[in-house]
Nucleic acid binder design. Structure first.
Lengths: 152, 152
DNA sequence: GGTGATAGGTTGGATTATTGGACCGACATC
DNA sequence: GATGTCGGTCCAATAATCCAACCTATCACC
């Protein structure tokens, strides 16, 4: 009844990746969020643009609201109409979406990427992950594991 | 028989995020990849550390190999034993995993993150997404949509 | 020779999730 | 009055997932 993904917390490594996926890892969740971040905030439009069936989308939006990724706001009375807007946590997923897009463009999608962004600097956007402190790229050899979550 | 996720390509917006999720978006796929990137490359160990059931994990690893994210390499004969190692595409997902970890630490996990990394510069790793060209942070107001995938 | 451990799965049966489509109430517009 | 929009819910059929048990093969030990 709750959500299947929740059972995931019961075993495996204690890990924020697993915890994050417990919130946004179910099918359609990220695609719904993609639409909201693109500015599509109405149920019907999100349904059309993702291809999700309406009842699953309804369930996903509900969990995303419960978990604080989206907020559901009434924008008119009579008849009551709602829109979904991203919370701070939702907006914080934007870099991850762009990272996924970059990865998909490079390793999955044939031909040029169907969606393209330009940065303020004028260049086509190809995001890169850097250390928040020294701003050097985060490459495999440049990090050291300090502490690892235990397997429960 | 193929994979449920594949049907996703049939509708919705033409989008590399959706395409990427078609490869790595199923449950357990990213957690299996997490273990491989942490250096756990044997089936039993991945099963224990993720908490996935063995048959599902077996299916997920097979798709990840088919799709070029992992490679399955025999490391001994008699009895034949295999290990899973990341391909270039798999290693390219490391920044996304770190981004997910950062997001989970901040918005989902209670208390301090269970897993922590240190960068070469000496600081605890808090990755950040920047423009690959000018190296400025990718903030919501600093990008412009040039082209958007069509809804099919 | 027998027992147990390790490795990498497969099989079966029960439980859940997902799907597409139909349907609904409250309007608004033609 | 008919049709359309919006934000969903409900339904039956299908598909995926889960867990436990089992299997094959080898090695180590006694």
């Amino acid at each position: 009844m709750v959500e299947g993904m929740v059972t995931m917390a019961g075993a495996g490594r204690d890990c924020s990746i697993a915890n994050a996926l417990g919130v946004i890892g179910e099918r359609w969740s990220l695609l719904a969020l993609r639409e909201v971040l693109l500015g599509e905030r109405r149920f019907d439009q999100i349904a059309r643009n993702t291809g999700a069936s309406r009842d699953i989308l309804s369930a996903r939006l509900r969990t995303l609201v419960e978990r604080g990724v989206l907020a559901k706001v009434q924008y008119q009375e009579r008849p009551p109409r709602y829109e979904y807007i991203p919370t701070e946590a939702g907006r914080a997923l934007r870099p991850i979406m762009l990272g996924l897009m970059e990865w998909g463009d490079r390793y999955v999608t044939d031909g040029p990427g169907p969606t393209r962004w330009e940065h303020d600097c004028g260049a086509e956007l190809h995001p890169e992950m850097v250390c928040g402190h020294c701003h050097a790229p985060v490459l495999p050899g440049t990090t050291r594991l300090v502490r690892l979550g235990q397997v429960r």
